[in-house]
Design a protein around this nucleic acid. Structure first.
Lengths: 194, 194
DNA sequence: CTATAAAGCAAACAGTCGTTTGTTTTTTCT
DNA sequence: AGAAAAAACAAACGACTGTTTGCTTTATAG
């Protein structure tokens, strides 16, 4: 009665399914994307998706997890290269925005699909988001700011503005995620030099 | 052959329909709200809604219009009471946030339902949003800022942060839309005093 | 009081939704 | 080569979707 552990097949199309789901969730939103849309995108039958995921919301959670993982990874790598607190925050802001606007679909799903839109998965989604927020809280805590400064507002101001940029940003010669993040940070940094 | 102009009936339930649609679109999003949801909320039959609106997306546009109207009205009234540019911007920020977080459903739908989620109505929705953005652009243009300041980034930073607050704000003793807007503005204002 | 237009009812249309069930194909391990 | 597990197919389930059509009720105008 030995339990044989088997290695997954190499032609497993689960990665493709996740890619397609991420793309569609980002383009059309969660509710407007059907399981058939996703299945068609990877040339599968709708029912086959249920071999990989028990329900539609589990697919979303999987995309979310990968999104948070990607952003966290990029931001961690970016701040590791800096030592000065303001430099670290700027590096984080740039990495955050580049992850959102350049990495592509996974990261954008995280800030575009609202937990409240998917009641059955809301708790799990919020948890994933919160784990990331802590990173920025630590960076802001390390800043040399005047004692009366409201550091929570500071964090919410910066992160809110960065996340909202998804709604208006269009890549072009003058504009880049990096230049925008730096602009934002300059506006905030100058204010604290008095 | 005289064309008789008649006054609408006084028991018209269209306002109730709009209220219910605004509430549901805000709570569940556009795609997840069905015409039956809305009809049930006002004790009507689904088909009856089509006497007032030719399609679901027209209902959304109507809610959007009222939302933009409400926000614009509040902000205009608030800035009219101030003369100094920074005071005017702060009054606008407070009014904007109070409109979003206190006025209720109509205003929140405007920043919560994305035009890209409703392709058939996207153009109309974007137009409504843009008409409002101009208001803030004028306020920022009037600020006495150092010549090298990027005023567009300034506006996007502030407005983005204000709009994003819908995702984390919870009313309580310490927190109010007014106090948040003022915190944000203080962080930005101090930076420009050097 | 009566015609007329406003507002809504009743019932259905065709299509789409997430999901389930039973079966088949394909790969891996022994 | 043969057994077992992985991955997907094929086909359908009931529920729900936005919308249409024809008819009825009800308030208003003359």
């Amino acid at each position: 009665m030995t339990q044989t552990l088997r290695i997954p097949r190499s032609d497993n199309r689960l990665p493709l399914v996740l890619d397609a789901a991420a793309r569609l969730f980002r383009e059309k939103g969660y509710a407007a994307t059907s399981m058939r849309d996703i299945a068609t995108a990877v040339d599968m039958l709708p029912g086959s998706l249920y071999y990989h995921f028990a329900a539609k919301e589990d697919l979303l959670v999987a995309v979310y997890e990968e999104g948070v993982r990607l952003i966290t990874e990029k931001v961690r790598a970016a701040i590791a290269r800096q030592t000065e607190p303001w430099e670290r925050l700027e590096a984080a802001a740039v990495a955050h925005l580049e992850a959102l606007l350049k990495t592509g679909d996974y990261a954008l799903v995280v800030i575009r699909v609202l937990p409240q839109d998917v009641p059955k998965a809301a708790a799990r989604l919020v948890k994933l988001r919160d784990s990331y927020d802590k990173l920025f809280a630590e960076l802001v805590a390390a800043l040399p700011l005047p004692p009366e400064t409201d550091r929570q507002s500071f964090r919410l101001l910066l992160l809110g503005a960065l996340n909202w940029s998804q709604h208006w940003f269009r890549e072009n010669g003058r504009n880049s995620p990096r230049s925008i993040a730096r602009s934002f940070l300059k506006l905030l940094r100058d204010a604290q030099k008095t």
